[in-house]
Computed example of a mutant assay.
Amino acid sequence: MGCASSRLCLYPQCAAARREEALKQHKELSQELVNLRGEL
């Protein structure tokens, strides 16, 4: 990304990249939660 402060950047490209990363992390954490519940 050509933005030095991408964490605070409001340009659509930066916002889309942050959203995509957040969705990926959410999916990973949801899967981890399902796995942990299965172990209980």
Rank of each mutant, 00 (worst) to 15 (best):
S6E: 15
R7D: 12
R18W: 06
Q31V: 01
R19S: 14
M1E: 10
L33K: 08
Q25L: 14
Y11G: 05
A15D: 09
N35I: 01
K24N: 09
C3P: 07
K24F: 06
A15S: 10
R37N: 00
Q25H: 09
A15C: 12
S6F: 10
L23F: 05
A22P: 00
L36V: 03
L40S: 04
L23P: 00
R18E: 02
A15V: 15
E20M: 09
Q25N: 05
L36Q: 06
E20V: 06
L40I: 00
C14K: 11
E28G: 01
R19V: 06
Q25Y: 13
V34Q: 03
P12D: 10
H26A: 11
Q13D: 11
L8R: 14
P12Q: 07
E28D: 03
Q13K: 15
K24L: 11
R19H: 08
L36N: 02
R18C: 01
L33R: 04
S30W: 02
C3N: 14
E28C: 05
P12N: 08
R37F: 02
E32P: 00
A22H: 06
E21P: 01
M1C: 11
L36R: 02
C3I: 11
L29Y: 07
L33T: 03
R19C: 08
E21T: 06
K24R: 15
R7K: 15
A4T: 09
R7T: 13
A4E: 11
L29S: 02
L36S: 03
A17I: 10
R37P: 04
Q13W: 10
A15P: 00
A22N: 12
H26W: 05
Q31E: 04
P12H: 10
A15T: 15
L36H: 05
G38K: 01
A16R: 15
C14I: 07
A17D: 13
K27Q: 08
C9T: 09
R7C: 01
